[in-house]
Design a binder for these strands. Sequence first.
DNA 1: CCTACACCTTCCCATTATGGGAAGGTCAAG
DNA 2: CTTGACCTTCCCATAATGGGAAGGTGTAGG
Lengths: 131, 131
Amino acid sequence: MNIGQAAAATGVSAKRIRYYEQIGLLGKSKRSASGYRVFDRDDLHTLSFIRRARRLGFSVPKISALLALWQDQGRSSADVKRLVETHLDELREKIGELQAMVDTLQHLADRCDGDKRPDCPILHDLERSES
Amino acid sequence: MNIGQAAAATGVSAKRIRYYEQIGLLGKSKRSASGYRVFDRDDLHTLSFIRRARRLGFSVPKISALLALWQDQGRSSADVKRLVETHLDELREKIGELQAMVDTLQHLADRCDGDKRPDCPILHDLERSES
DNA sequence: CCTACACCTTCCCATTATGGGAAGGTCAAG
DNA sequence: CTTGACCTTCCCATAATGGGAAGGTGTAGG
């Protein structure tokens, strides 16, 4: 299977597959006589794993750790869970930051008339002298 | 006032100030005879504005728009409000994506024993053949 | 007056994960 | 053998910084 077919089969673009190989997330691909990358069912399986992990917001280094655990038959589920909970903490922290922005902005927008006049509490707040 | 003092006074690092000038978010700074950037009270005011906008998650292009409105005495608050509401939509969309990740991961983590055994619904899910 | 030392300047590199595109080789069908 | 689809590598760009080098400036103390 060539890279284009692997990409179509897994939803991971050819560009990304080459990138993952380059940074060492994937081992070096087998190559055909002419230098084309060749993928087998196991490779597709791994690529799909990576794609799902990306969708859940894991960074490449974290996926690397997840892959290592996945392939380690002697892993403990505690290790996997710990990794995921750390990720959950980070996601929640990010959500908290974004939510705080939303709260502030919504508060300001609620007080903005949104008409033709220039007065606007939003700009007024951004302009304030404190902080 | 030199760049270091302006940075200390506004909380915007010297690096960032230079960057903002370079990309045109700030006009070209006045310079001393020896080439040092010189900042006055107005500049500090603008830098503080930018810092607050950054903290509320606005991108540089959006801040550029906000600054233009801020400095336009003939603006309408409707324009400001529209910009902010677009931003709010984007923030909320991002939060939604992150929250969906959290929901999925929490669900999986809840089902993971987190002990010494290798069985783990998290890896099992990432590995699944569908999707 | 000269020497430190702190601060300034510009320039280049790195970050994260990906897309775009060029130049050139390969393969299968007609 | 040509065409077109596909592959290869390589370089560039993204957003918004931080790090650090090489070299000029400004000031304070000896």
